[in-house]
Amino acid sequence: MPDFVIRTENLTCDFAAVRAVDRLSLEIPAGIVFGFLGPNGAGKTTTIRLLLGLLHPQSGRAEVLGFDTVTQADAIRRQTGALLEHSGLYERLCAEDNLEFYGRVWRLPKSERQARIKELLTNLNLWERRQESAANWSRGMKQKLAVARVLLHRPRLIFLDEPTAGLDPIAAAALRNDLAALVAREGVTVFLTTHNLAEAEKLCGQVGVIQQGKLIALGHPDTLRAKSGSTRAEIIGRGFTESILLTLRTRPEVATAELTNGRLVLQLNEKTDTAPLITLLVSSGAQIEEVRKGDASLEEAFLKLVEEEE
């Protein structure tokens, strides 16, 4: 049993003149949900393809579950599950047949296959609709079915490439909850790419941030938030005029000052005392009802990291 389920050393992948993954070095321990964050085209999907042995790197190497991604790709694919960019469902087939096919692919014995399909579809509230063609389902239901397919053969490691992309907030939250429950129940390691930083914050024990193929940050979400060194203050009240905003923006301790839904949101450069800023607001005629202060969100930390890298 390796110490790390995924280990890469200077993994590099080029497409013609474009460097998609640039000397990526990662070590991901077993049993966690690892969030791989980055803007579009940062190299997240290419990294998954490299880790599954679907693409070969130009230089560097990677091991997944102790197997080399170039020479032992078949062994990796035998022990992992993947929900890639698209759900990969056969929409002409019914939900049950989709799982039946992949159950056969993973050579689950018939009785185990049937029991497992029932267990997963029941847990995801899809059992009653198992005979329906997936083509007529909502995107959220399709994604749930795809998650069931990924977990069908009880893989030790699963790759999820933006599983909630394109879902409405309710469907995304429902899928996230189902995913978290299933992952906890199955005890698998998850390599999750996402744009949704709130999702990463809720699900991930460790995150990596990739930008233009380069890993620019790695650690626990709390560590990344703390590393960004900024504090966020949300002030609820009235009378936040444009001139007050302009005054605030000239202050050295204020990185940004924005009005969002009638609330004044301040990004502070350091862990500064907000009392002088409140005094300034009150003296400028604003009425303060409530002040909430905390570390920057993962999203803010992420944006700061990406901006710094650019």
Partner: peptide, 14 residues
Amino acid sequence: ERHTLETLLASRLS
């Protein structure tokens, strides 16, 4: 065309 190929290729099938 139906975006199922990559999932199939990512399976254990040779």
